[in-house]
Nucleic acid binder design. Structure first.
Length: 557
RNA sequence: GCGCUUGUAGCUCAAUUGGAUAGAGCGCAGCCCUGCGGAGGCUGAGGUCGCGGGUUCGAAUCCCGCCAAGCGCGCCA
C-alpha cells in the first residue's frame, strides 16, 4: 500500500483506539462506532486530514460533539505520521502530517519509481471494459473520442489498482445496418464504373462511401460487376467493413487507444451462442411470440415494455445479439465484472440490458454501464455540426488533426462522463500555449531540464538528506505528490478519471511555484542534493500522472 | 406526455460523494526576469450553487414540486 493511504488508515486506527479506550474508562458511552470518516479540510491551516466523526456521534452518544472530540483527542495515541491533532468547532478533529513523515515520502516515491500509486483494490478480479464499439459503417465521430479516452484511461487506472482488465471493441458486423452499408457501397461501386445502380433507401450517403467504392474499384477493378449481385454484394460488404475497421483502428491509434480484443458480433451466430442464449431465455419463460415476432418479456422484470428480439422477418434485433454478447462476457468468458461505456443515444437501452442480464441469472450489479453525454463542437461560439471539408459529420480524425491528440485527450478527460460538454475548436487551438496540457507537460520538462543540468555538472545525490526540505513550497509540493494514490483510489472507485486532470494541474502548479521559490542547484551542496531528490520524485509523480491519462511526458518541449 | 442526464464566476468545468470560508483554467485589472528553460511566478476583481419547499448539528450534494437544456421512448443500431 502506498504511503498516504497507510497514513490515512493509521489516523483512523488511532481514532478508533482512542474511542475504545474512552469507552472502557467510561469517558464515552458504549455505542457502536461507524467507520471513521476522513477528509481534507478546505483550509490548509486546519491540517491535512479532518474527521467529522464526533459530529456524527453527537446524537448517538447524547453528548456535545466538541466534548466528544476533546475526549477522543485526550485519549489519542501519538504516532510518527502525525505532528499535531486538535479540536475545532463544531466538532471536527484536525490532523497535521509531520514534516518528518512527509520528507521521508520523497525517498519512498523514488524507490517506488514507476510502481508509485500501485494499489491492491481489485485483487486480480477479471474485469472487462468495452467502449467505443462504433459501427463499422462509417468513421468514428467526436463522441466516440470521448468514450475512447474515458475507457482507455479507466483501463489504465483499474489495472494499476489490481484488476485484471481486458479492453474490448464490439464490432457490429451483422444485421441490417451492415447490409444497408454493403448495398450503399455496392451502388457507389457500380456508379464509379459507369453502371447505373440506385442507392438503397436510407442508405449511407456520406462522401466516405464514395471514397471507399473508389478504393475498391482501384483494387478490384470491374471484376465484381461480372459476379452475380448477391455474391458481389457479400464480397464488397466484407471488403468495405474491413477497410472501415482499419480506418477506425488507425484513428484510435492516433488518440493512443488500442484494444486487447476486437469482438465480432457475427461470431455469436456462427458459433451457435446466439441460439443457445435464446434457448435459455425461452426455458426461463422470458420469451413470447406475438404479432409474428419473438419478444423478451422485460415488462415482467419491471421494464416499461417488452422488446422484440426476433423480428417477424426472422432477423434478430441488435438488442438480441447484445444479450447473447453479454452472456458470452459473463458466462462463456467468465468476467467477474463488466463495464460498458455507451453514448448518450443508448441510455434507453441501459435498464433493459440489465434486465436481460438478470433474466439470464447473472447478478446485474456485475454490469456497470457508463453513459457519456454528448459533445457539442463550437467554432467562435457557433455550433459546428458539419465538416467544411466533406459536408459530413465531423470525424474524430479531423478533431485530432486540428487540436492534437494530447489536448484532445486532456479535454475529453477533464469532464465527468455525465455532463454534456462544449468543445470550442478555435479556443482549443488559440489557447494552445496556455492550454493546461502544456502547463502540465512543461512542469515535467522542467524536472528533466534540472536533472540534465545537474548531471552535466556531475552532481550525484543518492545520499541526499530529504529532511533538509523544510520550506513551505517544498512541503507543499511533497504534500501534493503524496496524494496521487488517493486520487487513483478515488478515480478507480468512482470510475471517474477526470479527477486525474485536476490533480495534474494542481501538481504542476505547486511544482512551478516551488521552482520559482527555490533555487535547486546552489552553493549549498547538501540542500542541492535534497532538492534534486525532490525534483526526481516530482518527475516520477508528474510522469505517472501523465502516463495514466495517456498523455506524453516530454523531456523537452 | 414518460424515462435518463444536466443546471455552480463573463466562458468552459471541478468540488474527496452530507462537512468548516464553494475552487481551477480561460478571459479581465495589475505586479515580478542580476535565475537550473518565462510555455513560468505573485496579487486582485468576479457567486441569491436554476427557482421554491423539506430532511438535520450541517445541503451545491439527499427528498418533493416547478423552470430550462440535452438525449432517449423503432420489428434501427
Amino acid at each position: 500500500m502506498s504511503g498516504i493511504l497507510e497514513a490515512r488508515n493509521r489516523i483512523a486506527e488511532l481514532m478508533a483506539e482512542a474511542i475504545k479506550k474512552a469507552k472502557e474508562s467510561g469517558k464515552l458511552p458504549d455505542v457502536n462506532i461507524p467507520e471513521v470518516p476522513l477528509e481534507h479540510p478546505q483550509v490548509p491551516s486546519y491540517g491535512d486530514y479532518a474527521s467529522s466523526l464526533p459530529l456524527r456521534l453527537g446524537r448517538l452518544m447524547r453528548k456535545s460533539p466538541v466534548e466528544i472530540a476533546e475526549t477522543i483527542l485526550f485519549m489519542l495515541p501519538t504516532s510518527p505520521e502525525i505532528s499535531k491533532a486538535s479540536v475545532a468547532a463544531p466538532g471536527f478533529i484536525n490532523f497535521t502530517l509531520s514534516d518528518e513523515w512527509l520528507t521521508g515520502q520523497v525517498d519512498s516515491i523514488i524507490s517506488d519509481g514507476d510502481d508509485y500509486g500501485r494499489l491492491q483494490l481489485g485483487h486480480g478480479e477479471k474485469m472487462q471494459l468495452e467502449f467505443v464499439s462504433g459501427n463499422p459503417t462509417g468513421p468514428l465521430h467526436v463522441g466516440h473520442g470521448r468514450g475512447a479516452v474515458l475507457g482507455s484511461t479507466l483501463a489504465e487506472v483499474l489495472r494499476l489498482v489490481g484488476y485484471d482488465v481486458k479492453t474490448e471493441y464490439y464490432i457490429n458486423d451483422a444485421g441490417s445496418q451492415i447490409a444497408n452499408f454493403g448495398r450503399s457501397i455496392y451502388a457507389r461501386y457500380c456508379q464509379t464504373l459507369g453502371v447505373d445502380k440506385e442507392m438503397p433507401e436510407g442508405g449511407y450517403f456520406g462522401d466516405y462511401v464514395k471514397d471507399l467504392a473508389r478504393e475498391i474499384v482501384a483494387d478490384e477493378g470491374r471484376l465484381l460487376l461480372s459476379s452475380p449481385e448477391e455474391e458481389a454484394l457479400a464480397r464488397i460488404t466484407e471488403i468495405a467493413v474491413r477497410r472501415m475497421l482499419d480506418r477506425i483502428k488507425s484513428d484510435l491509434k492516433l488518440l493512443g487507444v488500442e484494444f486487447d480484443v476486437w469482438f465480432s458480433e457475427s461470431t455469436l451466430y456462427s458459433s451457435g451462442q446466439f441460439d443457445n442464449v435464446m434457448k435459455i431465455l425461452g426455458e426461463k419463460g422470458y420469451l413470447i411470440s406475438r404479432e409474428g415476432a419473438i419478444w423478451f418479456t422485460s415488462s415482467s422484470l419491471g421494464e416499461d415494455k417488452d422488446n422484440v428480439l426476433i423480428r417477424s422477418d426472422g432477423q434478430p434485433t441488435y438488442f438480441a445479439s447484445d444479450i447473447a454478447y453479454h452472456y458470452n462476457k459473463f458466462v462463456e468468458r467468465g468476467f467477474d465484472e463488466v463495464i460498458d461505456i455507451w453514448g448518450a443515444d443508448h441510455q434507453g437501452h441501459v435498464s433493459r440490458m440489465k434486465a436481460a442480464v438478470a433474466a439470464l441469472g447473472i447478478d446485474p450489479d456485475r454490469l456497470t454501464i457508463i453513459i457519456t453525454q454528448m459533445v457539442t463542437l463550437y467554432r467562435n461560439n457557433e455550433i459546428v455540426r458539419l465538416s467544411k471539408r466533406t459536408g459530413d459529420i465531423i470525424t474524430l480524425k479531423e478533431l485530432i488533426d486540428e487540436v492534437g491528440a494530447d489536448a484532445c485527450r486532456l479535454f475529453f478527460l477533464s469532464r465527468a462522463a455525465d455532463s454534456q460538454m462544449d468543445f470550442d475548436l478555435e479556443l482549443a487551438k488559440e489557447q494552445s500555449s496556455e492550454n493546461p496540457v502544456y502547463y502540465i507537460q512543461y512542469a515535467h520538462t522542467r524536472t528533466c531540464g534540472v536533472l540534465r543540468y545537474a548531471k552535466g555538472k556531475g552532481i550525484t545525490f543518492d545520499d541526499g538528506d530529504t529532511s533538509l526540505l523544510t520550506s513551505e513550497s517544498e512541503l507543499d509540493l511533497i504534500k501534493k505528490m503524496v496524494l496521487l494514490p488517493e486520487v487513483i483510489e478515488a478515480a478507480a472507485k468512482t470510475l471517474e478519471p477526470h479527477h486525474l486532470v485536476y490533480y495534474a494541474i494542481d501538481l504542476a502548479t505547486v511544482f512551478h511555484s516551488f521552482y520559482k521559490q527555490c533555487r535547486i542547484i546552489s552553493e549549498d551542496s547538501k540542500l542541492t542534493k535534497a532538492r534534486l531528490k525532490l525534483v526526481t520524485a516530482a518527475k516520477i509523480v508528474l510522469g505517472k500522472t501523465l502516463a495514466l491519462m495517456g498523455l506524453n511526458a516530454p523531456e523537452t518541449m
